[in-house]
């Protein structure tokens, strides 16, 4: 976990990569009690626009939150914020990397631009993350 940042410094946040396969999507559907059939091997998913199940957007976003948790620990739980838009569906199996690029501090928060991409470079989500300064 990073030490408290010096004034004006936005600490580096290490990227996080995870494999999202259908087994993980199924576990997420159970853990999140999400009944949406487009995430499972169902007729709705097969007949949908992608022809197969897609991962939950919140499962992809979880990489961003985990990346920030690994960087800031409880500080992320005590004042973290996210704002994202999903740009494309994650279709399992897919290897996804979350990154955070310093976007500058202000008087109150550390700010980052965040994104999740596939190993082919497809953008799955982008947006911002910030952390309240102590």
């Amino acid at each position: 976990m990073n030490a408290p940042p010096a004034p004006g410094e936005v600490p580096h946040v290490a990227p996080l990569t995870r494999q999202i396969d259908q087994g993980l999507v199924d576990r997420y559907a159970a853990a999140a009690a999400d009944p949406n059939p487009i995430h499972r091997d169902t007729a709705e998913a097969r007949e949908g626009p992608y022809g197969r199940p897609i991962a939950h957007g919140m499962l992809v976003l979880a990489l961003v939150s985990q990346m920030m948790t690994e960087a800031f620990g409880e500080g992320w739980a005590a004042g973290g914020a996210l704002a994202v838009r999903w740009r494309a569906p994650a279709i399992p199996p897919v290897r996804v990397t979350a990154t955070a690029t310093p976007a500058g501090p202000d008087e109150r928060r550390l700010r980052y631009a965040v994104r999740c991409t596939t190993e082919d470079g497809e953008l799955l989500l982008d947006g911002s993350a910030s952390l309240r300064l102590p």
């Binding site: 976990m1 995870r18 494999q19 999202i20 993980l24 576990r27 997420y28 159970a30 853990a31 999140a32 919140m58 499962l59 976003l61 979880a62 990489l63 939150s65 985990q66 948790t69 690994e70 620990g73 409880e74 992320w76 739980a77 973290g80 996210l82």
Partner: peptide, 21 residues
Amino acid sequence: YLDATAASETPGSPESWLPPL
């Protein structure tokens, strides 16, 4: 939830605080 998001436990979580997301 951590298992279902391929996340690892971090110091203090989940014993003391829930994963924020």
